[in-house]
């Protein structure tokens, strides 16, 4: 049986851990609200842009001069995977699940004879993937210590990716991130960015679509050449925001669990403590009584 002093010490330490986890939960909750608002505010732009792209893409798709960002380089050899994680841990399986998904995807592609390059966003993903895939990492970004993510950050990544594409270093680009579904569930999502996957309905209705009505200034291809890199950045931005919201959601849930577990532990320890205390008193009483009887 542990002595009373040890038990008291453990109870105090679990109590202060509980205070920390419950404070972290509160912080995560308020950050989550902000992150969610940011993600929602970014939605209209992405939607409008998709409309425009749809109107444009159909007309240029089949021409041989279509930009590689839309139809790819025509090869399928080098894959770039962008893994989006958080900079900080203590968020349950949030970071590990991205790491695992990226690693599995990379393994699968490599077993098919493809070359894999990795780019990590966030410190945790970099640390995870560096352990066994360090040689494949071509770039890393981290926003540690930043309050919010600006579009310019996503634009930077987009530009790097676009450069790699024009230099012919990559053929297919996929981003792996946690999509925010609800506070308790984040879904690991693999989204292909290049070549741009088409909305299914587009292939079925050829030239008769609404795009035929539009006038373009300057011509379609010039607009497309500017719209596509922008769209790439917007897609990355969206992934970053979703991931940020997911991170806070995951941390909130994890910290909620931790707080509850600490509560259970405190209850158990207190019970043990009281039992031990009572046993001690009983033992002392017995000693006194049997001592008195012996006299």
């Amino acid at each position: 049986m542990p002595n009373l002093k040890d038990l008291r010490g453990r109870i105090t330490s679990v109590k202060s851990t509980q205070k920390i986890t419950s404070a972290m939960k509160m912080v995560a909750a308020s950050k989550l609200r902000r992150a969610q608002t940011a993600a929602e505010a970014a939605r209209p732009y992405a939607e409008r842009m998709e409309c425009m792209l749809r109107a444009l893409a159909a007309s240029v798709r089949n021409s041989p001069t279509a930009p590689p960002m839309l139809i790819g380089t025509g090869r399928d050899q080098t894959h770039l995977l962008i893994a989006v994680t958080a900079d900080r841990g203590l968020a349950g399986a949030f970071n590990a699940s991205i790491g695992r998904a990226t690693r599995n995807l990379a393994r699968r592609l490599e077993s098919e004879g493809k070359t894999v390059k990795l780019m990590t966003v966030g410190r945790k993903g970099r640390d995870y993937l560096r352990r066994e895939m360090a040689s494949r990492i071509v770039g890393e970004v981290s926003y540690a210590g930043r309050k919010s993510i600006a579009f310019a950050d996503a634009d930077d990544i987009g530009r790097q990716v676009a450069e790699m594409l024009t230099r012919g270093e990559v053929d297919v680009v996929t981003i792996v991130y946690n999509r925010f579904q609800s506070v308790i569930s984040q879904v690991v999502t693999e989204q292909q960015l290049i070549p741009l996957p088409l909305p299914a309905n587009e292939n079925e209705e050829p030239s008769a679509g609404p795009r035929a009505l539009y006038e373009f200034e300057p011509d379609e291809e010039t607009i497309l050449a500017r719209l596509l890199p922008q769209n790439l950045s917007v897609q990355i931005y969206r992934a970053l925001l979703e991931s940020a919201a997911g991170e806070h959601g995951a941390r909130m849930t994890a910290m909620d669990n931790a707080t509850r577990n600490a509560g259970d532990m405190i209850k158990r320890l207190t019970l043990n403590y009281n039992r031990a205390r009572q046993a001690n008193i009983t033992k002392e009483l017995i000693e006194i009584i049997s001592g008195a009887e012996a006299v």
Binding site: A41, P44, Y45, A150, F151, S233
Partner: peptide, 10 residues
């Protein structure tokens, strides 16, 4: 009229 930036609807 709608004016949107990547960050928000203005």
């Amino acid at each position: 009229l709608e004016i949107v930036s990547p960050e928000r609807l203005l």
